[in-house]
Nucleic acid binder design. Structure first.
Ligand SMILES: NC(=O)c1ccc[n+]([C@@H]2O[C@H](COP(=O)([O-])OP(=O)(O)OC[C@H]3O[C@@H](n4cnc5c(N)ncnc54)[C@H](O)[C@@H]3O)[C@@H](O)[C@H]2O)c1
Ligand SMILES: NC(=O)c1ccc[n+]([C@@H]2O[C@H](COP(=O)([O-])OP(=O)(O)OC[C@H]3O[C@@H](n4cnc5c(N)ncnc54)[C@H](O)[C@@H]3O)[C@@H](O)[C@H]2O)c1
Lengths: 246, 246
DNA sequence: CGGTCCTTGTGAACGAACGCACAAAGTCGC
DNA sequence: GCGACTTTGTGCGTTCGTTCACAAGGACCG
């Protein structure tokens, strides 16, 4: 199915073929590393970093080893240097303009959200199909009509698009984003999107998250004693218990 | 490590030990099944359902097989019956009151969101620490002060809590929710939560999603040709390509 | 009522991810 | 400069998840 992943097996060469599960955790490590840097910590061990991230230290070390050998045995990792390396691997050394389509409840919250800029993302344009929304000023951006989507995306060179429209409109919006040149989409609408090859989609579905929690509520309620731990990783169903630090 | 999962290996007994990966997909199947039911479809094959969900039919069949044998060979699955069975497995036959803490940008959007009720979830109470927010009326709910959290959660019997506060306040809010009796938490704040055993946490982190997309943007941009597909499931890094429809 | 066709359910092979445990590598004290 | 100590990086076994491929089960037709 995939063409040529996994360069050299488990010990794949530096930078090539970082496993999906690892990629999904890197942003978490990065956030913690940045916090450590900000509070003046210059060095951190895999044990400490792993504890802060809620993973086992061996997993963390293996994750980092896919990027290269950036640690010092007997000491740990240099925080600033690791921040740089992880950022580079994730492509955060550059600026990513993003566009948001569907400026309703959720779209407004997203547009107002300050957590983007700090990570190299920049809300560059907002779009909505409703004429009453168009022209509205949200966080120093004017809401633009859908007709402007293609030209503006092209001009900005925006590669990432966020869909915050109702589910029924999502596929149509997605098609227009793709046609305009967007190749990565973050979808908040509860809909399965069909996209051509080469376009990446990630979805955030609140309702699904709640249903998964409901499942565990029911599970823990029915049998009686035994809670139940779960695996780890991005597919980790639920965290159950986590002590320690930071 | 875990106490007694996986009852009988791959062929585990009905209802016992549904794999995490499967549980994470059931809500998606359920949504599609409900849509089919609404449009009058009474029967669906694994092939059709899988296509609508964006998974392989074998995976879908195996997922459903963990719930029992609810299909009819040569025909497919009865939509209404399957909706019931999946709902039951997920614990959606009962009503789940949820509380939201932190009624800022995101909290407002969540409180206004209509997609909850339709799935058996009901926003039962809103809380905020800011005195200026307290008393505000959001979607027929008055925002309550944090002091009310424990008694109200207890009275409502709310088992699910949503955290939409700034990251710095998340752990404290989490502790209070747990102390009040909440055993499932959906966390929107970019923070790793420490919880006692038996409490389930799921996180939704926008910033992480965007960074994963950035990674793939960079990946696809640098090497040149080969796009790159990925696995499937909740841990699926990105969807890449997906044809067809519903 | 028997044959044919269709779709499910699953055994088994494969692959990805995790965790253990340890050797290699470097630091620090003396 | 040497030895003891600390922590990384990773080989290996295990678990979990996905995919293939097919036999078994049932509907439907004649
Ligand atoms: N509000 C939430 O907290 C929340 C939570 C989870 C998921 N969601 C999902 O996010 C999406 C948006 O939710 P919301 O509450 O903001 O809804 P909303 O109705 O407030 O906003 C939707 C916006 O999309 C615009 N729109 C509709 N069709 C469009 C089109 N074809 N092109 C461009 N814009 C279009 C509408 O004009 C509106 O402004 C929905 O799919 C919802 O299910 C929302
Ligand atoms: N706005 C978004 O679109 C968005 C997107 C992704 C993630 N987030 C995250 O969601 C969280 C909320 O974001 P927001 O934009 O709504 O922020 P916000 O500042 O608008 O709202 C935060 C709310 O939490 C309340 N609060 C603060 N401390 C509290 C405490 N100890 N107890 C109870 N309430 C408290 C504040 O009074 C405020 O009303 C943040 O962690 C943010 O990183 C927001």
């Amino acid at each position: 199915m995939t063409v040529s992943r996994r360069a050299t097996g488990p010990g794949r060469a530096r930078g090539r073929g970082v496993p999906d599960a690892t990629v999904a955790r890197l942003p978490l490590y990065l956030r913690i590393l940045r916090a450590l840097a900000e509070q003046g910590t210059s060095t951190v061990s895999s044990e400490e970093l792993a504890a802060a991230a809620g993973v086992k230290s061996a997993k963390l070390r293996k994750d980092l080893s896919y990027l290269g050998s950036y640690g010092t045995r007997g000491v740990g990792y240099d925080v600033a240097y690791l921040v740089y390396q992880v950022s580079r691997e994730l492509g955060l050394t550059q600026d990513w303009p993003i566009v948001i389509v569907g400026i309703g409840n959720l779209g407004h919250a997203l547009a107002n959200y300050g957590g983007f800029a700090s990570r190299g993302f920049r809300v560059a344009a907002l779009f909505d199909a409703d004429p009453r929304r168009v022209g509205e000023l949200v966080e120093d951006h004017e809401v633009l009509p859908m007709g402007e989507l293609a030209p503006v995306v092209g001009e900005l060179g925006a590669a990432i698009g966020v869909i915050a429209t109702p589910a029924g409109a999502a596929q149509g919006v997605c098609d227009r984003l793709v046609a305009a040149g967007v190749r990565s989409i973050l979808n908040f609408a509860p809909a399965v999107l069909a996209v051509p090859d080469g376009v990446a989609v990630r979805k955030v579905d609140l309702s699904i998250e709640l249903q998964i929690l409901a499942f565990h509520e029911q599970r823990n309620a029915v049998p009686g004693p035994v809670p139940d731990g779960a695996g780890s990783g991005p597919g980790e169903l639920v965290q159950t218990g986590r002590r320690s630090r930071a």
